[in-house]
């Protein structure tokens, strides 16, 4: 059986909120290392990969592999019934029909309990190899969100160019063009504002802003976001969580036909 207790319901609320517009039905794969999710969007150009390590829960117990097929719309409805600070416990039997969620208020003696019916989801899993990317940019997640939002007002696509000069986000649209240039930057007092660019070779790739704006819904999960790029391969956008847990998004680049 599965029993996983999260100190704050907020974490799961934010994760689900960040991915629910991209993917609808997905399997939460539970085993002794934690709870993982991998799902592609309908057009198969974007992929979500979530890992909540067992260390992110206390306690965490999962005796055998369980796939919980959950509709994220349903999960969102139930998670709205939890206060952000509630303690959240996920429970399921070994061959479950439902997943059970218990919300406990640390301040009051209120305990609420919900069951969500599970679905059989036949999901394709992709093997994503560990990749040495040509450029890795670590930057404030709010800054990345702002760039994507600002440029999406002008264009459907953004080109991300990374060179030893820094990183340039460029777009061209009907009304004109825009570009934002960032260089490596260290703020000793506010390290969350740091921009770090790790480059082994120059990279230039174009991506759909619609998807990037969508990924940025995860900004509330982490102060910093990591963008990993190599020419001609999908972009990795990573939001690191505590205990080596993470929320990652992959996006296929736009290429000439």
């Amino acid at each position: 059986m599965l029993e996983a207790r999260l100190e704050q319901a907020n974490l799961l609320k934010k994760v689900v909120d960040a991915i629910k517009d991209l993917v609808q039905d997905c399997n939460f794969d539970c085993n002794d290392s934690g709870i993982a999710l991998q799902a592609m969007d309908n057009s198969h150009v974007a992929l979500v990969s979530m890992m909540l390590k067992s260390e992110s829960f206390s306690p965490f117990r999962c005796d055998r592999n369980i796939a919980l097929g959950i509709n994220l719309g349903s999960l969102t409805k139930v998670l709205r019934c939890a206060q952000n600070e509630d303690i959240l416990t996920l429970k399921a039997e070994d061959a479950p029909d439902v997943v059970n969620l218990v919300f406990e208020s640390a301040e009051t003696d209120r305990i609420s309990e919900y069951d969500i019916k599970l679905m059989d989801i036949d999901q394709e899993h992709l093997g994503i190899p560990e990749t040495e990317y040509a450029a890795t940019i670590t930057m404030p997640s709010a800054e990345f969100q702002r760039i994507c939002r600002d440029l999406s007002a002008l264009s459907e696509s953004v080109s991300i160019e990374c060179s030893k000069e820094g990183v340039k986000f460029n777009c061209q649209g009907d009304i004109g063009s825009g570009s934002i240039h960032l260089r490596s930057h260290t703020n000793v007092d506010k390290p969350e504002l740091n921009v770090e660019i790790d480059l082994t070779e120059p990279v230039s790739l174009t991506f759909s802003l619609k998807y990037l704006v969508n990924f940025c819904k995860a900004s509330g999960l982490s102060n910093q976001v990591k963008l990993c790029l190599s020419n001609e391969v999908p972009l990795l956008v990573e939001y690191a969580l505590s205990n080596n847990s993470y929320l990652r998004f992959y996006l296929a680049p736009k290429i000439g036909d």
Partner: peptide, 14 residues
Amino acid sequence: VLLQKNLKNYYIKA
């Protein structure tokens, strides 16, 4: 025209 390829072109099925 710019196209986005299916991710299955980049990653193999696990």
